[in-house]
Structures are given as C-alpha cells and as structure tokens.
C-alpha cells in the first residue's frame, strides 16, 4: 500500500466530506503532494514518519509540535 493509497483511505471518511468539504471523488484523486488542511498535513506527516520507521510515541510528539506552529 503506497503512502498515497493510505492518505486516500483516510480522506474517504465521511467526516472529511461533512466537516472539511472534500468530496469522495476529490478524495479519490488526491495526490500526496496536494495542499490541504492542517488535518491532512497531520495525516501526511504521520504516514511519512511511519514509513521512516518512527515509533508511535515519536510520531505522536511530532504531530503535537507540528500543530503548534
């Protein structure tokens, strides 16, 4: 499963459509490099960090500090 596949899976969630206004079609075509909301940035960050082999704890800390910027 590629990083883009993973991100698209998350973007298929109903909350993304209702709260963040991204339709399912748009989500299906989403590219990993596309700019989005802070939520999508957080997801991308988590995916990339996991790919790097970072632990859950590290990624959690990383997300918290990333979102304070």
């Amino acid at each position: 499963m590629t990083n883009e596949d993973l991100l698209r899976e998350f973007l298929q969630d109903d909350l993304i459509e209702t709260k963040y206004g991204i339709s399912k079609e748009k989500a299906m075509a989403w590219k990993f490099t596309d700019q989005g909301s802070k939520l999508i940035d957080a997801m991308k960050q988590a995916i990339l960090k996991k790919q790097n082999g970072d632990s859950e704890e590290t990624i959690s800390r990383n997300l918290n500090s990333m979102l304070m910027k």
Binding site: D13, L15, L39, A42, A46
Partner: peptide, 18 residues
C-alpha cells in the same frame, strides 16, 4: 492549541473509522 486538539480528535475519529 484549540485547533490542535480539534484536528487531532478528528484524526483519531477518522483513523478509527477508516
């Protein structure tokens, strides 16, 4: 901080339902 909490709560909800 408020936004961070909201974003991470949404992430948690989305990750679980996904």
């Amino acid at each position: 901080l408020m936004e961070k909490v909201e974003v991470l709560e949404d992430f948690k909800t989305i990750a679980t339902s996904t």
